[in-house]
C-alpha cells in the first residue's frame, strides 16, 4: 500500500468531469498485442494520482495500473467509473486494497466487452448506419451523415457519461446493473428492428448476377430474369444465406470469405456463369 498520500480532499465535480473527458479523448493509442488497451489506464488516471500521491506513491499507483486490458470502451466507461471511485476511496480511507481494484478490472473487462460489442457495435451502430444510408439515398443527401453524427454523439456520450457516473457511485455493486434481465429484452427488440431494416437494405443493394442464358421457343432468355419473376433478387438472398451459413456454422472468418469470393466470382464471371 502506498503511504504517500498528500491530499484528503474528495474529487470535485470538475475533476471528475475532466477524468471522464480524458477517457473520451484517449481510447487506446498505440494499441499493441502485449498490453492491448492497458497503457491507457495510467494515462487516464494520471491527474488523479498526481493529486493524491507524492512522487513515490504516484509511480507506484501508475505502475499498478500498467497491465493487460481490453474491452469495448463505450460500455467500458462503467469499469472506469468503478475504478475511479475505488481509487478515490483508497486514497482517502486507505481501506481499499490494490488487489480489489485489479480484480475489478480483470473480471469486468470480458463481460463489459461482450455487452458493448453486441449492444453497441453489432446492434446500435449498424442500425444508425442503416437509417443514415436510407436517408442519404443514391444521390448522396447530406441528411444521412448528419443523422449519423447527431445520433452517434447524442446517444453514446450520455450513455458513456451515465455509465461512468453510475460506476463511480455504485462501486463494486455496479456489476449487477448491467447484467439485469431488462437489457436482454431491449437488445432483442433492437435486433429485430435491425433485421427488418437490414433485410430491406440487402434487397436494395445486393445485386448478385448470373450470366447464364437459355433458348426457349426460339428466344434467348436470361436465367436471372426467370428467377426474378418468381421472387425479386432471389439469388442475392440465397447467396446471403449461404455466406451466413459459412460464417455462423462453419466459423469461416470474413477475411477468408472476402478473398474467396473475389477469386471464385472472378472465375465464374470469366466463365460466363456469374
Amino acid at each position: 500500500m502506498e503511504n504517500n498520500v498528500i491530499s484528503k480532499e474528495p474529487l470535485t465535480k470538475k475533476e471528475l468531469n475532466s477524468l471522464f473527458f480524458r477517457f473520451v479523448q484517449w481510447n487506446a493509442p498505440g494499441f499493441d498485442y502485449v498490453y492491448y488497451m492497458g497503457k491507457s489506464w495510467p494515462w487516464w488516471l494520471k491527474p488523479m494520482f498526481k493529486k493524491y500521491y507524492d512522487k513515490e506513491g504516484y509511480s507506484a499507483a501508475l505502475s499498478r495500473h500498467f497491465d493487460f486490458y481490453n474491452t469495448e470502451n463505450t460500455t467500458g466507461a462503467l469499469v472506469y467509473g468503478v475504478v475511479v471511485g475505488l481509487e478515490e476511496q483508497r486514497a482517502l480511507t486507505g481501506e481499499v486494497p490494490a488487489e480489489t481494484i485489479k480484480d475489478i478490472k480483470v473480471s469486468l473487462q470480458g463481460p463489459v466487452a461482450g455487452i458493448g460489442d453486441s449492444l453497441i457495435q453489432a446492434t446500435l451502430l449498424p442500425i444508425l448506419m442503416t437509417v443514415a444510408i436510407s436517408l442519404a439515398g443514391e444521390n448522396g443527401s447530406i441528411a444521412g451523415p448528419l443523422f449519423y453524427i447527431v445520433s452517434l454523439f447524442g446517444i453514446l456520450l450520455p450513455y458513456m457519461y451515465t455509465l461512468f457516473k453510475k460506476g463511480y457511485q455504485l462501486g463494486t455493486s455496479a456489476v449487477g446493473m448491467i447484467s439485469s434481465g431488462a437489457l436482454s429484452k431491449i437488445t432483442e427488440a433492437i435486433s429485430s428492428f435491425g433485421l427488418i431494416v437490414i433485410g430491406a437494405l440487402a434487397a436494395r443493394q445486393c445485386g448478385v448476377t448470373c450470366g447464364i442464358t437459355f433458348t426457349s421457343n426460339g428466344e434467348e432468355t436470361a436465367l436471372i430474369d426467370k428467377i426474378n419473376s418468381i421472387f425479386p433478387n432471389l439469388l442475392s438472398l440465397l447467396v446471403i444465406f449461404f455466406l451466413y451459413w459459412l460464417m455462423k456454422k462453419k466459423k469461416i472468418s470474413s477475411a477468408v470469405i472476402v478473398y474467396g469470393m473475389i477469386i471464385v466470382v472472378t472465375i465464374l464471371a470469366l466463365l460466363g456463369i456469374a
Binding site: I198, L201, V208, S236, V239, I240, Y244, A274
Partner: peptide
C-alpha cells in the same frame, strides 16, 4: 461482377450478429 457480389458479405455478417 465481383463488386456487385461483395455487399452480400457485409449483409451476411450483420445477419450473423443479429439473428440467433
Amino acid at each position: 461482377v465481383v463488386g456487385k457480389w461483395l455487399p452480400c458479405i457485409g449483409m451476411a455478417a450483420m445477419l450473423v450478429y443479429l439473428a440467433n
